[in-house]
Write a protein that binds this DNA or RNA. Sequence first.
DNA 1: CACGAACACGAGTAATTGCTCGTGTAAAGT
DNA 2: ACTTTACACGAGCAATTACTCGTGTTCGTG
Lengths: 230, 230
Amino acid sequence: MIVETPKARRTPLQERSRARVDAILDAADAVFLEMSYAAATTNHVAARAGTSIGSLYRFFPDKEALLVALADRYRARLMETLERVRPPDPRGLTVAALVARGIDGFNAYLGANPGFRTLIEQANHPALREGNRAHDEAMGAAIYSMQERFAPLPRGKGKADKARAQREAVVAVTVATLGNLQMLSFSRDDSFRKRVVAEAKVMVVAYLATRLGIDPHAPLDGARATVVGE
Amino acid sequence: MIVETPKARRTPLQERSRARVDAILDAADAVFLEMSYAAATTNHVAARAGTSIGSLYRFFPDKEALLVALADRYRARLMETLERVRPPDPRGLTVAALVARGIDGFNAYLGANPGFRTLIEQANHPALREGNRAHDEAMGAAIYSMQERFAPLPRGKGKADKARAQREAVVAVTVATLGNLQMLSFSRDDSFRKRVVAEAKVMVVAYLATRLGIDPHAPLDGARATVVGE
DNA sequence: CACGAACACGAGTAATTGCTCGTGTAAAGT
DNA sequence: ACTTTACACGAGCAATTACTCGTGTTCGTG
């Protein structure tokens, strides 16, 4: 939500301007895809949106705000998509199947949204750092809960703390790998994409199986694991 | 090497200018580390090098050339470092030990060269694409040869082609993961770094073990594997 | 209808910055 | 000693571009 700060702009109140904000974001999406964010100019975006530069700056305090708003929109839609893919009751499914579902859903979303991919490539941009961190954390929460499902944290304050730090690393590594391999898969042609997606599944499943000490091809129901290396 | 093209500049011939080129690169390194490449100005770099903007442009055709030259220098030194870490005779060592050696060497180099890390974060920059690709390919060659060592390509033209494409994907996935997790390891404090390095080893070893169908903790000597999924 | 507020417009501005080029100096060649 | 080539300098240019602001229009409201 846009708040009244020295830099902030009006929140659109009328319907016509709300549509205009969407048009500007769509235009920014297209322009950032064609050229990079750095090469794009705000005048370009305004022209593409069929509006004036003044109207753009009425709703967006600066160029970065376009980037941030666009990233937020993409991330929100991604979360919806992944939520839709997530099985309501995982019992009976295997870990391998769960991972495969998530990877395929993510990959399909990225394939359908090339603009999101270019945004991810600009991930080092300071304005996106915070949002990306929050998003990775949300993704990680799912994996973290999966660990807890299989192996509750050990008793004892010292042991539990150490195990928690360990698991945070496991989650961070998994999330980073998932994102990284998704991007890699789109770096060449489509057959390469399919192969990389397959390899990503193998890698993550092999890793989680090793870490959780479970059989990734056994159904989840009633499974109990001993977490390795704690 | 700098060649005579419309954009190129003189190759330094005298000793004094050769030292100056190094000084400019060192200055660029420091400036790009403090602010980002995008925020840095060429005048900044020249001032930091204790020279004039004119002298900078005598040897570097444009700002991008600084980035490219710096990246080349870092990559060359990294390859030297990794070469030094590589055991001349891997027989008797385990796959897990080999992977651990490589990861630790890489991590130490990145730790000692924060400027290289910031350069890697700018990896999406078009001027660095080609160099990064070549570098990744060189890294991949080592892994590819490791696969061949354990399991020669199957006979028959069709089978061999398919297997080759498969292995290229395996190599690409491995290289991308290694680089990605290295960068992740430096994203927080030092204890996080150590944990991520440990997890990276686990992940890569688990993956290669699954893919090559070998015991990662058995010595290499005389080992023979059946590559999974070909 | 009247009036204020939100919206829309786009030419112009101010600041940044990569890079040139004319001038001057040190080194190499002969 | 004299010429030529390489090196060094830095003020200023040219181009880009994010953003402002004064003017005009549309909408909500009483």
